[in-house]
C-alpha cells in the first residue's frame, strides 16, 4: 500500500468513525502497526494546520476524533446544533473526587464533600460521565462509581493519566501507595 493511499484511508476512517477510533482499531482495518499509523496521523494534523483548516484531529478517550477548531465556535454554534451546558460547581467537585479516587462509593464521596451527593450523582449518571463500575466487598455491598470514556471526551482528555496532578502532599492524603 502506498503512503498516500494509507493516509487517505486513515483520514476517511477517522472522519467516518462514530466515536474516537484507536490506532489499534485502524491497524486492524488496514494492517499497519500503531507507530506507523500515529506518524501518518501527525502528517494529516500538520497538513490541516498548514492549510489553516477549520477542522482538526485530536487524540481523546484513547482514539482519534475530528473536531472543529475552537476559534470557530462562534460560527459553528449558529448552526443551532446542541451546545452542551456547563457543569455546576458541585458536579465538577463530585467528578473530580470520583476521577482521582475511583472506584469510590457514595458514602466515601459524601464524606469528602461533606454534603449529600444523590442529586449530583444522578445528573452525572444521566450525562453518562459516571457509571457504576462494581460493588464494594463491604456490608451492604455499596455501588462503586467510576468515570467513563464520555468523561474523557467531555474534558478533552486522552486518558486518566492526563488529569492534572494534585497538589503536594496529596498522594499521602489519598492513600496512593509508595508516596510516603
Amino acid at each position: 500500500m502506498e503512503y498516500s493511499e494509507a493516509k487517505a484511508i486513515i483520514e476517511a476512517l477517522i472522519f467516518a468513525s462514530p466515536s474516537p477510533i484507536s490506532p489499534k482499531r485502524i491497524g486492524e482495518i488496514i494492517s499497519l502497526d500503531s507507530r506507523t499509523i500515529e506518524s501518518i496521523v501527525r502528517d494529516i494534523q500538520d497538513k490541516y494546520k498548514r492549510e489553516k483548516s477549520g477542522i482538526q484531529i485530536i487524540f481523546v478517550a484513547g482514539g482519534y476524533e475530528m473536531t472543529t477548531r475552537p476559534e470557530l465556535a462562534d460560527y459553528v454554534s449558529r448552526l443551532n446544533i446542541e451546545v452542551r451546558q456547563s457543569l455546576s460547581r458541585p458536579a465538577l467537585e463530585t467528578l473530580a473526587i470520583i476521577a482521582y479516587r475511583q472506584p469510590i462509593t457514595k458514602p466515601e464521596l459524601e464524606s469528602i464533600r461533606g454534603v449529600r451527593v444523590d442529586s449530583v450523582l444522578n445528573t452525572l449518571m444521566e450525562r453518562r460521565l459516571v457509571r457504576v463500575s462494581g460493588r464494594k466487598k463491604a456490608p451492604g455491598r455499596p455501588a462503586l462509581y467510576s468515570t467513563t470514556s464520555a468523561f474523557l471526551r467531555w474534558f478533552g482528555l486522552a486518558s486518566l493519566d492526563e488529569l492534572p496532578p494534585l497538589s503536594e502532599d496529596s498522594d499521602s492524603l489519598l492513600g496512593i501507595p509508595g508516596s510516603d
Partner: peptide, 15 residues
C-alpha cells in the same frame, strides 16, 4: 476541570 469544561464546549466533534 472547570477550565477544560469551558474550553471544550467550543470544540464540536465530527463523530
Amino acid at each position: 476541570l472547570a477550565r477544560r469544561d469551558a474550553a471544550w464546549r467550543d470544540v464540536f466533534p465530527r463523530s
